[in-house]
Simulated scan of single mutants.
Amino acid sequence: MAPPEEYEGAYVFFVTGAPEAARLAVASRVAALPGVPGGVFAVVTDEGAEEFGVGRRVELKARG
Rank of each mutant, 00 (worst) to 15 (best):
F41V: 02
R29D: 06
V36N: 03
A32V: 01
R63M: 10
P4W: 12
F14E: 06
G64K: 06
A21C: 04
E20D: 11
V36I: 13
R57N: 11
T16G: 00
R57W: 05
S28V: 01
G39Q: 12
L60H: 00
A32W: 00
V58Q: 06
R29W: 01
R57C: 03
G17V: 09
G9V: 15
F52P: 03
G38Q: 14
L33I: 03
G38Y: 04
G35E: 00
S28D: 04
V15A: 04
P4N: 10
P3W: 05
E6H: 09
V43N: 10
L24N: 03
F14W: 12
G64I: 03
A10I: 05
V15C: 04
E8N: 14
F52A: 14
V58N: 11
V15L: 05
G53T: 03
E6P: 03
E8Y: 11
Y7N: 12
E20S: 06
G17F: 11
S28N: 03
G39I: 04
A21S: 14
F14T: 08
L60Y: 01
G48K: 12
A25M: 02
V54Y: 10
E50N: 12
F52W: 05
R29M: 01
G38T: 11
E51I: 02
V40T: 14
A25C: 01
K61N: 09
V54L: 05
G48C: 06
A32P: 02
G53V: 05
A25F: 01
S28R: 12
A10N: 10
E51F: 13
R23E: 09
E6C: 07
G38K: 11
A42M: 13
G53N: 08
P3F: 14
V30D: 00
E59T: 04
A62W: 00
F41R: 11
R57H: 06
V43C: 04
F41W: 05
D46S: 15
V30L: 04
G39P: 13
